[in-house]
C-alpha cells in the first residue's frame, strides 16, 4: 500500500449512514460496489457516457464512475437498491419498466431507473421529448429506448394519480 493516508468518507446511502476509510482516489462507483456491496449501479464505459453507474446524490443524478468517493463525503445517496416502495413492492418506475418491457439485459436498468426517478421528481409530467432529453445521459444497447419512454410515462401517470391507484388496490 502507498504512503498516502486513507481518508474517512461518511455518506447516507438509501437511508443508512455508513463510514469507510478509503484511498483518496477511490471512485464513488467502486466505493458503492466494493466497499458497500451495492452492486446495482454498474460500470459500462468508465468515461461518463453510458450512465450505468448513475446514482442520486443530494437530489441530483450523478455518474458515480466520474466522481471520487471523497467528493460525496457527507452526502445523501440513493441507489437502485433504495428505489422500491417502503413495503418492498416495486415502485411505480420499477413496475413501469416491467409492464412496458423497458429492459432486456438489465445492465443499464439500475442507472436508467435511478435517473428517471430524479427526472420525475423535477418534472412530474414530462413530454416524450423531455423524457428523451432527460435520459440522454444513459445508454441502452438493447431496447431502442421506445419502451423505456413508455415505462417512464407509465410511472408518471401512476404517480400523478395516487387516489385512483389506492382505490384500485
Amino acid at each position: 500500500m502507498s504512503d498516502i493516508e486513507q481518508i474517512p468518507v461518511t455518506v447516507t446511502v438509501n437511508g443508512k449512514k455508513v463510514q469507510r476509510f478509503v484511498e483518496p482516489r477511490t471512485l464513488l462507483i467502486h466505493f458503492l460496489r466494493e466497499e458497500l456491496n451495492l452492486t446495482g449501479p454498474h460500470i459500462g464505459c468508465e468515461t461518463s457516457h453510458c450512465g450505468a453507474c448513475t446514482v442520486e446524490m443530494n437530489g441530483m443524478s450523478v455518474k458515480s464512475c466520474t466522481m471520487f468517493a471523497a467528493q460525496a463525503n457527507g452526502a445523501e445517496l440513493t441507489t437502485i437498491e433504495g428505489m422500491a416502495n417502503p413495503d418492498g413492492t416495486l415502485s411505480a418506475l420499477q413496475e413501469g419498466f416491467r409492464q412496458m418491457h423497458g429492459l432486456q439485459c438489465g445492465f443499464c436498468t439500475p442507472g436508467m431507473i435511478t435517473r428517471a426517478h430524479t427526472l420525475l421528481k423535477e418534472n412530474p409530467n414530462p413530454t416524450e421529448e423531455e423524457i428523451r432529453m432527460g435520459i440522454a445521459g444513459n445508454l441502452c444497447r438493447c431496447t431502442g429506448y421506445q419502451n423505456i419512454v413508455k415505462a417512464i410515462q407509465y410511472a408518471a401517470e401512476k404517480l400523478n394519480q395516487p387516489e385512483t391507484q389506492e382505490a384500485a388496490e
Partner: peptide, 17 residues
C-alpha cells in the same frame, strides 16, 4: 411480462463483476 425483470429492476441481477 418478464420474470427476469423483478430482479433486474431492483439492481439484484448477478453479473460477473
Amino acid at each position: 411480462k418478464r420474470v427476469e425483470d423483478v430482479r433486474f429492476t431492483q439492481g439484484k441481477g448477478q453479473y460477473v463483476d
